[in-house]
């Protein structure tokens, strides 16, 4: 009976040690920080959806999710000053899909340290555009576009148009 209890205790300790080791291994294997690349690519990343299925011929809502790189902001769809470039989503003609409308999120107020009196209307972090699309029947690989202009607190990148690839299935 005592031997069985001892064996049980040993087994229990072994289990604890195994789990603890596995935990620390998991942490180490994922803790490796990637090499920091300062190559300038996109300030805005399209997240999802990659594919949507909508009823053919009917305006259907499609929520498009984007992410803005940390420390950057882009002008909202309705910037407060005329000289600022608004964020605009578009769908090319003859892609089998028409953009019937797009609802943009409201911008958040933002001020540059060099001019705390002027409020800008911007997007930061993740944002979603609620598009209404009309598709003809069939499978359409749409290369939609998002035009934006990004800045950080002291400098601005040139305006950019990125491709937003969406596989739209009209049923």
């Amino acid at each position: 009976m005592r031997a069985a209890r001892k064996a049980g205790e040993f087994l229990l300790i072994c289990t604890f040690v195994t789990i603890a080791c596995a935990n620390s291994l998991c942490q180490e294997s994922l803790n490796t920080s990637p090499g920091r690349s300062l190559v300038k690519t996109e300030a805005v990343e399209y997240l999802f959806p990659e594919q949507v299925s909508i009823p053919a011929g009917k305006p259907s809502p499609v929520a498009l999710h984007f992410r803005i790189h940390q420390n950057l902001h882009i002008n909202s769809h309705t910037p407060r000053a005329e000289y600022l470039i608004p964020t605009v989503f578009s769908v090319p003609e003859a892609s089998g899909v028409k953009l019937a409308g797009a609802a943009y999120p409201a911008g958040t107020d933002f001020t540059l340290p060099a001019d705390p009196d002027e409020k800008l209307s911007v997007y930061t972090g993740d944002f979603t555009i609620q598009a209404k699309m009309v598709a003809t029947p069939g499978n359409h690989l749409v290369e939609a576009k998002l035009r934006y202009q990004a800045c950080d607190q002291t400098q601005c990148l040139p305006p950019k148009t990125i491709t937003v690839p969406i596989d739209v299935i009209g049923k």
């Binding site: 789990i19 596995a22 935990n23 998991c26 942490q27 994922l30 803790n31 490796t32 920080s33 990637p34 090499g35 920091r36 690349s37 300062l38 190559v39 300038k40 690519t41 996109e42 300030a43 990343e45 790189h69 940390q70 420390n71 950057l72 990004a150 800045c151 950080d152 400098q155 990148l157």
Partner: peptide, 24 residues
Amino acid sequence: GWANWMYRKQAAEHALASASRAEL
């Protein structure tokens, strides 16, 4: 352990994705 592993996996993926994005 599982939750910790999943969290760190997501954090690592996010960091990798961020590393290749634009930066001023």
